[in-house]
């Protein structure tokens, strides 16, 4: 997977969480790996099918998740990650991925009409989790923001 396929997801993340009022968004250095180890609490993962095929996972601590959900709900305090909060995190993953594909990624693949579907997000909680989200490779980018770190993991097959 080439680097140019990664930046649409990062730009989309910046756009989407920027709209919720999150600031100080800095992208870290991309890292390539086969297995992804997550030591934060929450991972939202969704799939893409079509002529872009793969999985994208967004990991964050529960503190960051609460702040994200709170920002999405205009500052309403969020005490725990309940079903509404989970739904909000899934929705955020949907928005970022949809945004990335429809805006920038389609330009990169110009000449080729992009047809794709985003599959429903799954939210995974737990500690010290080892993931494989792609049989080829996974590119993981840490993103530091005013509400904490969000790790973007991208495994596309193309």
């Amino acid at each position: 997977m080439e680097d140019k396929y990664i930046s649409p997801f990062l730009e989309a993340l910046k756009n989407v969480i920027g709209q919720f009022g999150v600031t100080d968004i800095h992208f870290g250095k991309p890292e390539r790996k086969e297995t992804m180890h997550v030591d934060t609490d929450i991972t939202a993962v969704l799939g893409l099918v079509g002529n872009v095929r793969g999985n994208v996972a967004y990991s964050m601590s529960s503190e960051t998740a609460k702040k994200t959900v709170s920002a999405m709900m205009y500052g309403m305090p969020v005490e725990e990650i309940d079903s509404i909060a989970r739904s909000a995190i899934g929705e955020m993953a949907n928005m970022i991925t949809g945004n990335a594909i429809s805006s920038s990624l389609s330009l990169l693949l110009s000449g080729e009409k992009i047809t794709f579907d985003i599959t429903p997000p799954s939210i995974i909680f737990g500690k010290d989790i080892y993931f494989i989200i792609s049989s080829i490779e996974t590119v993981s980018v840490p993103v530091d923001t005013s509400i904490g770190r969000i790790e973007v993991n991208i495994g596309l097959e193309m």
Binding site: V38, V45, G47, L48, V49, G50, R53, G54, N55, A57, S83, R86, S87, G90, D117, T119, P120, P121, S122, I123, I124, F125, G126, K127, D128, I129, Y130, F131, I132, I133, S134, S135, G155, E157
Partner: peptide
Amino acid sequence: LRLAPPIVFAGTDVIISIPKV
């Protein structure tokens, strides 16, 4: 129907949730 690639994971006290479905 078309399939996305599989995701697999193992960890401690893992809970899987799929909202609204």
